[in-house]
Design a protein around this nucleic acid. Structure first.
Lengths: 128, 128, 128, 128
DNA sequence: GTGGTCTAGACCACT
DNA sequence: GTGGTCTAGACCACA
């Protein structure tokens, strides 16, 4: 389930964030599903609780989960939430980096558009 | 010429690397052109020489330049670099993740395409 | 009647306290009115009895209600409570801080007044 | 300079945030001023570096400072920054709480408006 | 049991 | 020297 690479340049908590975000975004974890407790997850992936705590806090800040003290951490309902501009510009930034790297790799504008359209087809209009 | 943002989360040397990459990829710096010396560049952009040194080393590691002891640093010939399929599929994966997240945030296909086209304009087709 | 938000950073018992305070201050619950029993209220708002118990205790501590063993909890008579100058100046200080921060954020005097009036409307003059 | 109350219900890092925010908002610390390093401040106020780190991170998140790894932490320039809606609604929330508490204390709408206007006069239009 | 905070001390990358 | 992350272990408030 979890892919952690201690040698990665990415910090551990960031990897935890990305892993969980992926599960949420792809619908594996659905709104109001309960995430494992900080202690549980930290035990499962043999990481310090503080690190998991930090990851959860970051996910909450980005609006993907909400934490209730004494109860647990739950997946936020995607709908009804106002879109966070900061989160959006972060995603845009990452997408721009992808395009840059593709250019570096020598791909033409047409090829990049092709790749993008292929992705758009796969993640169709709400089917995924 | 150089856009350095201290407030960015990117480290300085990383920004230097990106700036130089951009110049090379867009043909402003052509194969076998000489880059400014570490000392010169560090003076121009008021950055610690160590930082520039590190940036040059990173560029060499990635194959964008080659350093000749006692002579200087030169742009490597871009041609002949074969596109790495593994790298490509990694980038594609990350781009797909961005699209998924945008969908989750409630953006329509139209809006996502709009964002993509905006990015493509900024990172023009080698003209800029 | 009760607005509880699990996602809020406020603890549940604190929200219960605030809700009850509101009802008392606005005269919905009048002096010597009987509050629902801990058990009843906890059932109505689907909250742990311990939480309601704690809220009642806090309200008593603050002088809004009085508890009679074996009988129940009752609204205290609001009159006779003298305004505490220290408390008042503390609140004033905090409000001044808010105004300072709004100014720092670049809001005009007009805008700040607008925000204030909006708040005053919501917490109406005892009518709501 | 720093008023820390270990017994307070407020967490330490929150108190650090508030203290620094006050200095910034009131112009004691001006844009691009350097804050003490995490280690220095933690030593001065005899608090764990992690706690100060958390406070600084929170201030950065709210846009009051920016941190540069390897250089230090600096006061952000208030102008030119787009107003953060989350920060704004947080301030509004706190102001609303003040109003509520004033009501609880038995102040009339007129009196509250009077207090507000007094504050607005003190923190005039950019003079403070 | 759950999240939230804190301490003490450590290592790393970057300037 | 500066920020950034991490560990190990602890205490607290809340449900």
């Amino acid at each position: 389930m979890f892919q952690l690479d201690l040698k990665s340049r990415k910090s551990i908590y960031e990897q935890v964030v990305d892993n969980l975000k992926e599960l949420i975004v792809h619908g594996v974890l659905k709104p109001d599903d309960k995430l494992p407790s900080v202690r549980d997850l930290s035990g499962q992936i043999t990481v310090n609780p503080n690190t998991v705590q930090k990851a959860y806090a970051e996910l909450e800040r980005q609006g993907y989960v909400y934490m209730v003290s004494g109860l647990g951490t739950f997946v936020a309902s995607g709908t009804g939430r106002e879109i966070d501009k900061a989160v959006l510009s972060d995603i845009e930034y990452r997408m721009a980096e992808c395009v840059s790297e593709l250019r570096y790799q020598g791909m033409s504008g047409e090829d990049i558009r092709g790749m993008f359209e292929k992705i758009m087809k796969e993640r169709g209009d709400g089917k995924c």
